[in-house]
Design a protein around this nucleic acid. Structure first.
Lengths: 124, 124
DNA sequence: CCTAGTGTTATATTTTACTATTACACTATA
DNA sequence: TATAGTGTAATAGTAAAATATAACACTAGG
């Protein structure tokens, strides 16, 4: 996996797993890949994986069963809340960033529209 | 200044100065605060400031005059390009993030509208 | 010429993230 | 009960970022 060297790997692993949960690749109750397998898949050390999982366990996003594995929480509400939270965080960030660049609300919205519209050309 | 401990300080300093330039707080030809002053203002070490400035000098965003100070480039075109670049980077990021959360283009745009509309309530 | 203000550079130290490696604890199952 | 698969934890080492501190180089002005 490709990581941004400006932010801690364990933090990016958390985000990766969040997204797997948000998109349904990992559903409530699902068993995650074994920590050693995740380490191989992501080409990182087991301890780094463990650090990410440890935080998610503390948060209650995943549940650990020693000897069995790590499992996505059965609390679907939590997943929904998490998704909403991730979305708002992103919106908040762009808004603040673009607003700090002296753009008006209207300019922010229209620039996003333009960006998305102009996207079809060279991507996907 | 408050820093996000998930990303290097020198990198955040660069972004801070970029924004100062984008908003016009620092205009082309303007003299930046002395490195030691910046270090005090940002409550950071001189070397950390220097690392940020060093990269910006290499980029050509600012120009250094030994014994005199650091100055914003006179090349207004560069400032404009930089602003456009910063905007696109933000749009790209938000788009990719939200798209990865299974949102459609329309949902992304409308969620931003909703966010901005609902913003007036508790902020500014 | 001296001094204060500026950028630049270097050394040593601390802290944090990450890695490598090993060991331990628990579960399921053959 | 042995073994393979799982999570958990500790130790030691490396690398990068940031700090503290000091010195050097240049400029302007008295």
């Amino acid at each position: 996996m490709k990581f941004d060297d400006k932010v801690p790997i364990y933090y990016q692993i958390k985000n990766y797993l969040y997204h797997e949960m948000m998109t349904g690749a990992l559903e409530p109750g699902d068993k995650l890949p074994a920590v050693r397998q995740l380490a191989v898949d992501l080409t990182v050390n087991v301890n780094t994986v463990q650090r990410a999982l440890g935080e998610m366990i503390t948060e209650g996003t995943i549940e650990s069963q020693r000897g069995k594995g790590n499992f996505v929480t059965m609390d679907k509400n939590r997943i929904t809340q998490l998704k909403e939270q991730l979305i708002v965080e992103q919106l908040e960030r762009v808004y603040n960033e673009l607003h700090a660049l002296n753009m008006t609300d209207e300019q922010i919205i229209s620039s996003l529209k333009t960006y998305i519209a102009g996207r079809g050309q060279q991507h996907d």
